[in-house]
Design a protein around this nucleic acid. Structure first.
Lengths: 110, 110
DNA sequence: CACTTCCGGTCTACAATGTATACCATACAT
DNA sequence: ATGTATGGTATACATTGTAGACCGGAAGTG
């Protein structure tokens, strides 16, 4: 994980979606969160690619879990954000918060 | 301007920096704002490339202005965010605000 | 069982962004 | 004129964003 890595816009949202779903963060749930909160829906391929990159950067980890509540029986990946990932999210949020300061009049819906 | 364009992470910050500087948004000032608020400093080339792309997308416009307060005499580009740009910033902010909801405990500094 | 149809996931490829270096021109001080 | 700072362009490449084709297992159905 080169220290110079940078957190893309979509990557950031994926990490946040994982945090939102807490301990129920499997691929399907994360996608639902993105769709609901950000109106964003990407293909499976795009989605997993992003997850893999975030893993390589050390911003998330995952473990295989047997099927949730009995239903269909295929293990699935369950994702978690690492402390490094959280630190990045924090930095991004602080920067944006500062840049938004004083612009409420402009940036809020009429 | 293809309607499907998307606002990158850095592009977003540049637009916000322009808004912050209001009617004094020339290249130098925008860079200062980015440095101060986001701890971000990119090369001239990178910077102008981004500005040009934002212009092509219709998110900003600019006009040449004679040197500010008398000093040195080279006209400079003065930037402004278009209504379309503001709309994009708004969408991005709303999405992030929703994704941050309930995560203050995690995303705030200890 | 053969057959379809979802899931959950990988592989591959390409478009859009992020970013740097090299280069050009004008103004001003020496 | 020569050096240096200001403002900006051109070009090139690394990183992200994103889709589509492809694969294996589980369930349902005739």
């Amino acid at each position: 994980m080169p220290p110079k890595t940078f957190l893309g816009e979509f990557e950031q949202m994926v990490l946040l979606a994982i945090l939102q779903r807490g301990d129920r963060a499997n691929a399907l749930e994360i996608n639902r969160e993105l769709e609901a909160s950000a109106g964003r829906s990407v293909s499976k391929g795009a989605f997993y690619t992003t997850l893999d990159r975030l893993e390589r950067k050390g911003y998330l980890t995952w473990e295989a879990r047997p099927a949730e509540d009995g239903r269909s029986g295929l293990p699935q990946r369950h994702f978690r954000v690492t402390p490094e990932g959280i630190a990045e999210l924090r930095k991004a949020r602080e920067a944006l918060t500062r840049l938004w300061r004083g612009l409420d009049g402009v940036l809020e819906r009429p």
